[in-house]
């Protein structure tokens, strides 16, 4: 079983649309994991049935029992996250600032602070329109620990793939270079980098590749909207050469990306010509090198 992760550093490069197309082409050979849990969009294209839904608990949150609190203020003094403001003379935990470190209950002289399990979101195991399984999630508002939810979604997808003897787990990764991306990358066999020829696209590609390189994972790159700026496209290509990253394909700037999405379709379902051909070849190439 191989784990292939698609990431982009920068948002809006077409990562999810491209991953959905690859998943469509992969059909029943793959298990799909949407690890972009912070703004998960894959379900809009894959018609999941939300077959199983489960709550995800991760981390803790402090709560002060007002009846037992003697307003000594020790908890607020030691809190490094300014999470215990005084409101109307009462010490109250601000749930958005509390990081769940558990220091405050240890200094409370009257044992008035409980650490409660925090519900950070929901995760789902669905059957999608290609007849295969997708694991996906919805992170709660302002939730911490998205890295842990990402890891959970991915591990569930891997477990199912092994159980059902599937060849590939295809992962739609998160943007950025922080904890959710690190979780998306850990254990990956191959990384597909999706970028665009804009100064921001190139900048973010270089940063996210630095991370991929730290993990020592082989990578290939799809340049989307390649004709938007031929000069930056050429710069991306020379960066790929220099870093030994395979250039999987270049896709043109094409509003069919949006048109397909508007109909809830993957690009390969919507477009029967150029884009379809390039993506079909890309999937064949990725399966071959990964």
């Amino acid at each position: 079983m191989k784990e292939i992760v698609v990431i982009s550093g920068k948002g809006g490069t077409g990562k999810t649309s491209i991953t959905a197309s690859l998943a469509y082409l992969g059909g029943k050979d793959i298990v799909l994991a949407d690890c972009d849990v912070d703004a998960a969009d894959m379900h809009l294209l894959m018609q999941p049935d939300f077959g199983q839904a489960k709550d995800f608990y991760s981390g803790l949150i402090a709560e002060i029992r007002q009846d037992d609190c003697i307003q000594c203020g020790k908890c607020a003094d030691i809190c490094r996250f300014d999470a215990i403001p005084v409101i109307d003379g009462k010490y109250i935990v601000d749930p958005l600032s509390c990081e769940g470190c558990g220091y405050c209950p240890r200094v409370c002289p009257t044992d008035a602070i409980d650490m409660l399990d925090m519900n950070v979101g929901k995760w789902y195991v669905s059957t999608i329109k290609t007849g295969t399984t997708m694991v996906h999630a919805k992170l709660g508002i302002g939730a911490d620990n998205s890295g842990k939810l990402v890891a959970h979604v991915k591990n569930e997808a891997k477990r199912i793939a092994e159980e059902e003897d599937k060849e590939i787990v295809l992962v739609d990764g998160s943007p950025g270079v922080g904890c959710p991306v690190v979780s998306s990358l850990s254990g990956a066999k191959f990384v597909v980098l999706v970028t665009e020829p804009t100064v921001s696209g190139l900048h973010d590609l270089k940063r996210v590749y630095e991370l991929v390189d730290k993990f020592n994972i082989p990578a290939g790159c799809i340049i989307n909207k390649a004709d938007l700026n031929p000069q930056v496209s050429a710069e991306i290509e020379s960066f790929l050469k220099q870093e030994n990253i395979g250039h999987i394909a270049s896709l043109p700037y094409d509003e069919n990306f949006t048109a397909a999405m508007t109909q809830g379709k993957t690009i390969v379902e919507y477009d029967e010509n150029n884009l379809n051909e390039i993506l079909t070849q890309s999937w064949a190439k990725i399966k071959q090198i990964a």
Binding site: T16, D38, A39, D41, L44, L96, L139, I141, G142, A143, D144, S146, G178, P180, T258, M261, T262, G264
Partner: peptide, 24 residues
């Protein structure tokens, strides 16, 4: 919508949400 966004917006007087007119 996770912790970095909360940290970046919680002290703001006004927030401009930028979007595009697509399903995503």
């Amino acid at each position: 919508t996770s912790c970095p966004v909360i940290e970046a917006t919680k002290d703001a007087d006004f927030i401009i949400l930028v979007t595009e007119p697509t399903p995503f």
